[in-house]
């Protein structure tokens, strides 16, 4: 006898009448022995029949007469963007935006008052930066080693000045 789990897996095909003859025999054999599955099938059959009774609220014909003219007006209001003027490919632009965002996230993290940057291991800082934006993680995870991220994106002098300003603000 097939398992209850298999019955669930075959359920949609059974309900929609697309289960093969052989599987249908096994399916029904299971139902004859398992009252729980039999009850579930019966309830789902009824549910499916019931939801098919959902009526669609028809819109009046006048509504459709105005649909295209309205769409045309919207098209005129929003002219086609001139793609040929873009100086860089979309992917490069996205990459640049992502990197700028990463720096912003890193800088905002570094400005947290009271954060002792000198005692914070670089890997922890990197992980913090990366955890701040999962999309960036996804974007750059294959391109950089974790240690390289802060190193590559935030020059040491900026990092030093941020550490100094952070120390001043906590004094």
């Amino acid at each position: 006898m097939i398992s209850c789990r298999k019955v669930k897996r075959w359920m949609i095909d059974y309900l929609e009448g697309t289960l093969s003859k052989k599987k249908k025999v096994l399916f029904k054999k299971h139902l004859s022995k398992c009252s729980r599955c039999a009850q579930e099938v019966e309830a789902l059959v009824k549910t499916q029949r019931l939801v098919r009774l959902k009526a669609r609220e028809e819109m009046p014909e006048g509504f459709w007469a105005h649909y295209l003219p309205r769409l045309k007006r919207r098209l005129e209001e929003k002219p086609l963007p001139r793609l040929e003027w873009r100086p860089v490919p979309t992917l490069a632009l996205t990459t640049a935006t992502a990197l700028v965002l990463l720096i912003v996230v890193a800088v905002s993290l570094l400005r947290i008052p009271g954060l002792d940057l000198e005692s914070l291991p670089r890997e922890v800082l990197v992980e913090e930066v990366r955890a701040s934006n999962s999309e960036l993680d996804y974007f750059i995870a294959d391109s950089f080693e974790p240690e390289e991220i802060v190193q590559a994106l935030i020059p040491q002098e900026i990092l030093d000045s941020l550490i100094n300003s952070n120390q001043e603000s906590t004094l």
Partner: peptide, 14 residues
Amino acid sequence: ALQKLRERLKGYVE
């Protein structure tokens, strides 16, 4: 989806 609808529509189905 059907399982959730069955629960929600129990009053009609049972």
